[in-house]
Design a protein around this nucleic acid. Sequence first.
DNA 1: ACTAACATGTAATCTGTTACATGATTGA
DNA 2: TCAATCATGTAACAGATTACATGTTAGT
Lengths: 182, 182
Amino acid sequence: MLAQYVILGLLKERPMHGYEIKQRFEKISGLFWKVSYGSLYPALKKLAKAGFIVQQRFSSKDSPGRKVFYLTEEGETALYEWLREAHDIGDVDRNSTNEFMLRLIFFSFLPEKEGRELLLKRQTVVCKKWEEMQGKLEEIESREEKGDYYKLAMLDYIIRMIRTEKSWLEDLLSGRDMPSFS
Amino acid sequence: MLAQYVILGLLKERPMHGYEIKQRFEKISGLFWKVSYGSLYPALKKLAKAGFIVQQRFSSKDSPGRKVFYLTEEGETALYEWLREAHDIGDVDRNSTNEFMLRLIFFSFLPEKEGRELLLKRQTVVCKKWEEMQGKLEEIESREEKGDYYKLAMLDYIIRMIRTEKSWLEDLLSGRDMPSFS
DNA sequence: ACTAACATGTAATCTGTTACATGATTGA
DNA sequence: TCAATCATGTAACAGATTACATGTTAGT
């Protein structure tokens, strides 16, 4: 499902054939998402059937040959709709975060202002979650119910991750020089 | 698959019935993993069939009634084996990270030394990945191929996340007071 | 000549979700 | 008495992976 849209996004960059799409897919989003041939080729078929992409076959005689796929206008519309749905991502769990990041890859296709708005929306969601987790932690600490060491460690991990996303968003929105990588 | 082992871990804490397991499951690991009834109850069935858990029915007359599940010795053995497999998690992508964190929840069941070893192993994997990503970034910067703003932002995001896990592990291993949450 | 990577595709299988069905218990 | 939550379970469906099958191209 998500793979379909990533394919559209990649094809907006330039026309590609299946194998190439997979490589690019994994180069860009490898840590968030992977795609297998067993889902890639059926996905391409579906997209073609829906009219979102068209294919051109390069057949050298009878060999199956490469098929290059092109994004259609309908496909572009579908891509934009999907990108704008980033507005509806209201959680910070693993799935929601992946869905947001997968869209982010293609934010440069949107008008600058819109990308910014989507980031601001994400910021409110992340901040809310951060406060929620912070509250959970304080509750545990106040009850002196220290409990399990590793479970506390996991809560710590989650809070750190959310805080990291929070400051990443702040830097991105403030236009600060991005590679603040120490 | 993973849910099965989390269930074993939760039942080692104390016997529970299905509904309770789901609640506890989500309270602890909600940001990493969720379980639906459509997988929970079949999973419990499978575990019972495999002899990893046994059930006691509390039937008030003819009502379906609650079923309380208990971990067996075989189940405990399976749980330990799974926890020790944390050794084999050699990547830092979303799936691998989730698998590691899901195991971490139950590390307190292992001898202290073993938990530490698993964390050290994770540390080497994370550090390696961090260096790899750092290299990728430098390569991009050196080529002056600044390219897409948002794609760079995503690389930044990934590196920050890995760095956060890195310092979390350092703090955890050094026994530093965990809630370093500012 | 051989190996690795390029390139496409399908079928069996596995896993998990959604929606549905049922009924008990508890508190307003 | 009514709604919410507790509690268990199944069947249809959706999605994705793995393994297989096939053939090309490029480099050593």
